[in-house]
Design a binder for these strands. Structure first.
Lengths: 218, 218
DNA sequence: GACGAATTTGAGTCCATCCTCAAATAATAC
DNA sequence: GTATTATTTGAGGATGGACTCAAATTCGTC
């Protein structure tokens, strides 16, 4: 008999065998895909199980309710984002602003599925929102750190503001690449151009080494 | 007795008296607010009626089902957007790039509730998506027209690409103003700065009259 | 103020979906 | 092989929310 030792609402078991662990993986991936496609409310527990090749009973063995599935997904996605941004500053050392701009853009494109799923999970739950804000904080901190590696002497608050702008620019590009392709083919390049223009302008005064064209005021 | 003359699924009446017209207004506004807050699926027909100070029967008198409410909202919001963007080109005459940049930013902030509600309505309905794309097209066309008024000689395709970038920048600012206030207070100003920097750079070669600093290649 | 038409009401139906659970099956330990 | 424990299954209970409708009420008009 299962002991269900640690605190959980009514029922909620950890998988104890390899099969169970894999099932949980499959269930979470199915849930992530479906919720990203259709939204939280529109996704059915039975559908989740079905897409994972399981029956609804299996789903409820590992997750006490629908909320718990969403929470697990949020936690999992947040962890991925935190890792990626924590790793960013290291990669950012020894990059020109232009190169940094492009690396950042790349990063967000990679993170797209994760972020997409996360935003679907935010449907009207304030408590989950604050977790998302925390993730956003990590992203901004990571980018700001990368900026200050690239441009030592940059004020910390300003770095955060710039990071917020860049983060949003990254999001926009992600959106363009995944949706707007047909209408305005040159837009992604234009956006990259804007991003580089901005970062070059903002980082020029603090530029490590090389040609310092000083014309922007903090 | 109501005739229900023109084609409607099962039941769906136009309001014929002032009271009815006002009720419809109230119902749509309530629906718009709720769906913007919680999403389409999570919003209940009873809630909509309640927030409008009505009972569920009244709601079903004017809308045959929940879908119809959403459709009416989409149509209404799209109309607002089209009007605003159509009016833009006229206002844009005789503006410097910097001033135009700020006017555009303003505009999207104004349009925020409308756009927010629209995006909530997009939850997984492909047919509504294409209507939204149409709205997006109008927005880009409006902005591109404004740009070409401001910078005659600007290539049309390029104008559309730039418009797409600016449109997305506007969206980002809207998001910042409504959400991110606490974390990064300076970010909105940074974003404005980026937008001006970009537009100045892009429009400089085609600048109507005045000081032509030519340094950007189309 | 009386008549007809528009509007409001809310109890009630129907059905989709969340969730339960006891029994069946599969895996592991011995 | 047997005992034990983990996992799977799927029929059903409970709930909530979309939608109906006949009766009550309000509004406009003559």
């Amino acid at each position: 008999m299962d002991s269900n030792s640690s605190r959980g609402k009514r029922t909620s078991l950890q998988p104890l065998r390899a099969a169970g662990r894999q099932r949980v993986e499959e269930l979470l991936e199915a849930a992530s895909d479906l919720m990203a496609e259709r939204g939280y409310e529109a996704t059915t527990m039975t559908e989740i199980a079905a897409r994972a090749g399981a029956k609804i009973g299996s789903l409820y063995r590992f997750f006490p309710n629908k909320e718990a599935v969403a929470d697990a997904l949020v936690q999992r996605h947040i962890a991925v984002l935190e890792d990626e941004y924590a790793a960013l500053a290291k990669r950012a050392a020894m990059l020109s602003p232009d190169a940094l701009a492009d690396v950042l853009i790349e990063l967000l494109v990679t993170l797209h599925p994760c972020v997409k799923s996360l935003s679907a999970l935010m449907e009207a739950r304030t408590d989950r929102m604050e977790i998302r804000d925390r993730a956003r904080g990590h992203a901004i901190a990571g980018i700001a750190a990368a900026l200050r590696v690239c441009a030592p002497g940059l004020d910390e608050a300003l770095a955060r503001d710039i990071a917020a702008v860049v983060l949003n620019t990254m999001k926009v590009l992600r959106g363009m690449i995944t949706k707007d392709a047909p209408t305005t083919p040159g837009a992604p390049d234009e956006l990259r151009r804007m991003n580089r223009l901005y970062l070059a302008d903002r980082l020029a005064p603090y530029q490590r080494a090389l040609d310092g064209i000083t014309d922007a005021q903090p």
